[in-house]
Amino acid sequence: MGLRNDQGIVLRGFPFGEADRVVVLLSPNHGKVRAVAKGVRRTKSRFGGRLEPFTHVDLVLYEGRNLDTITQVSVIEAHAGLRGDLDRVLAAGTMVEVIDAVTQENESSLRAFLLLQRGLSALDDGPRHPDMVAAFLLKAADVVGIAPAFEHCAGCGRTADLTRFSFAAGGVLCERDRTPGAVALRPGLTGYLAGLARSDLANLPDHDAGFSGEAMGVTRRFIEYHLDRRLKSLTVDG
C-alpha cells in the first residue's frame, strides 16, 4: 500500500457517506478503478468539479485495502462542451455505459480507453454526427472481440447474396445460411453499417437519414444481445 499515479476517464460516481463520492474511472492500464473522493460533495471541495463523468483526469491515489482514496486530481481534458448540449450529453452517457459494461477491474483496457477518449473528443469537438453512437457501439463490439460481420456471411464466409442479419450468429448471413431468427435488412444498410464500423469517429461517412434509425436499431439490438443487458441510457429520451 502507498501512493500511486494513474490516469483515467470518469465513468460514473455515487454518493458515499456524508460528503464523499465513490468514483468509477477507466484507466488505460488498470481497467476500471473504484476510488473514494473525500468531501467532494461539499461546495468548497477542491476537486469535486474535476471528477464529474466524461472528464479525463490525472490522479494520485492512496491505495487502501478495499478502495483507493483520491488525493490529487488534475484535468487532462474536461469535455466541458458536452455538458452544454442535451443530445451530446445523452450520447456521451451511452458511450460511457457501454464501456462500463465491457471493461473489468484490474485488467488492462487500453483499446477501450482509447475508443472512449476518441468518442468523447469527437462528440465534444464538432457537430454531432447523427450516427455517432451507432458507430461507437460497433467499435466497442470490435474492442471486445464481437465485431459483427458485414461484408461476408457469418456462417460460410461468402460475400454474395447477403440478405439477413443474425444477432446470434454475429453478422450478416447469406440466403443459404439464413436462420429463423435472422432479420431482413434493406438493401444498402449493411454497406452503411460497415462504413460506420470502419471509419474514424471524427470522420464518419456522410449521414444517410434513410438508414439512420435502422442502423441504430440493429446496432443496439446486437450489442444488447451480446451483453445480455439493456442499455439504460438509450431508454432516456431527450
Binding site: L11, R12, P53, V89, L90, A92, G93, T94, V96, E97, D100, R230, K232, S233, T235, V236, D237
Partner: peptide, 10 residues
C-alpha cells in the same frame, strides 16, 4: 435528476 448512465429519464 435525469441520469443517462443510470437510465433515469424525464
Amino acid at each position: 435528476s435525469i441520469s443517462p448512465i443510470e437510465g433515469i429519464g424525464p
